[in-house]
Design a protein around this nucleic acid. Structure first.
Lengths: 249, 249
DNA sequence: CGGCTGCTTGAACTTGTTCAACAGCGGTGG
DNA sequence: CCACCGCTGTTGAACAAGTTCAAGCAGCCG
């Protein structure tokens, strides 16, 4: 098992080997799994642990009283729940597995002592949480200002970039296990309109999408369509400059 | 000068008097002002200090290359910039004053030592930052799923509730210095449509809005229209149970 | 007074929704 | 093995929500 969280954090700044190992150790404490399309936490639950996605895709979502549903963010391998989530009285949203998901539940006190003793790691974790906030702001822009075509293009750019940061891209391709309904719930449009928008993007040669694999032949072109500026992800170091995944066993 | 931040934090849990005083002291370190409709920070700037709004309304916003603009959140008196903002290389959004704004710039090291020695305060500040994240998620829902009428109703409910938490409401009224253009940029709609939607809400007796004062005659009714569930603000204690503002001079 | 900003209105238009039907595919049970 | 079911994707046509463009009005400030 590679430590994808460590890999992601190294995009912000280099980490000492001991920190990477401490992190890896903590993730191996308590491993759990969830079946596809099942909830991991429900709105109203009391949050106890910090969770880390090890494998599979999950979503945060909120429901309106009349059944409308909005996906509020995607949780990809290497993503954590908010570091301090246990401070809240109850969950104000739900977390659901899209695919089968493996995740670690990390004991609160272990994280706290780790942050106290390892300043570089602590710093990286805080940067990560600032990036999570930045992503949420960017979604606000996506839903508020962009057209259907731009929204989908932007979302694909973001997901590709985030997957790439944890080594889950291959050249110009990545997995894309989302149904058109999922895409609609994330971008605030109907599945029908998602369908037509995808066809448009395909027709223009901007994406290839089948068998749950997304290919982006010309990344710059898609970024332009989606007005995607990766600065908000704060990836300072290119992936090549970080510790190779093989060394982070 | 009342300490609105302390007042807000006390909605999460009681704070020892010394903590409140320490906070008050820190806010008085370096006071600055900004004129209405001027930027306080621009996208690309390097963030150095944590800021705290003392008086006036500000916004976080992002611009698209073609000039479209999205207001991403409102900063009201008592609101801070992200505690750890100085960890980022550069701002990924701008902060602008809507009205004349008074704010404090808080030295990074002072905050850090304060958090180390005062655990209740530190805890309250972290809860606050989780609430900020929750608000951003709720905006995602607002823009993604709600209709024009619901969006405006929800936004008014949120702003009223947040102002009330820092004692800036009076009965069923609060200030509302936003132009219809501002409302449009926050809710992802055109000013024209904001105008028509406001008229609809007025006609239905849900709001009274003139001279930059918003009155909500029947709060429950407006909350129902906007499907506003205040749980995401995590105000555990009612305002009446917190230290009275007069005691937090 | 003149010019600016913000609010209001109407009419044509565009984008995205709704409703309904159908095709493909994989899994399941008879 | 085949029939059937449910889920996902696709298509068409009518419709609704929100945008655009354009003009005019009110209030305010210098």
């Amino acid at each position: 098992m590679h430590n994808l969280l460590a890999m992601k954090l190294q995009r912000f700044a280099a980490l000492p080997d001991e920190d990477v190992q401490a992190l890896g150790h903590m993730c191996r404490q308590s491993i759990r799994t969830a079946r596809a399309r099942r909830d991991i936490m429900r709105e109203g639950d009391q949050p106890h642990h910090v969770k880390l996605i090890i494998d599979g895709w999950a979503i945060r979502y909120k429901m309106l009283p009349d059944g409308r549903r909005q996906i509020v963010s995607f949780l990809l391998p290497g993503d954590m729940c908010d570091l301090n989530i246990f401070l809240l009285d109850q969950m104000d949203h739900s977390i659901g597995a899209l695919t089968p998901v493996t995740y670690a539940e990390m004991p609160r006190d272990l994280i706290e002592t780790m942050c106290k003793t390892r300043s570089a790691l602590s710093r990286a974790l805080w940067i990560d949480s600032l990036v999570v906030a930045a992503i949420q702001r960017e979604w606000t822009v996506n839903l508020g200002q962009r057209t259907a075509r731009e929204r989908i293009a932007h979302l694909f750019c973001e997901l590709f970039e985030r997957l790439d940061a944890v080594g889950l891209s291959e050249g110009d391709r990545c997995e894309m296990p989302l149904t058109q309904i999922d895409l609609g719930e994330a971008t605030g449009m109907t599945a029908v309109h998602v369908n037509r928008t995808l066809q448009e993007l395909r027709r223009d040669g901007l994406i290839v999408l089948n068998n749950r694999i997304l290919t982006i032949p010309d990344r710059q072109a898609l970024m332009t369509v989606g007005m995607f500026n990766p600065a908000y992800l704060h990836h300072l170091l290119p992936r090549s400059m970080t510790t190779p995944a093989s060394a982070i066993a």
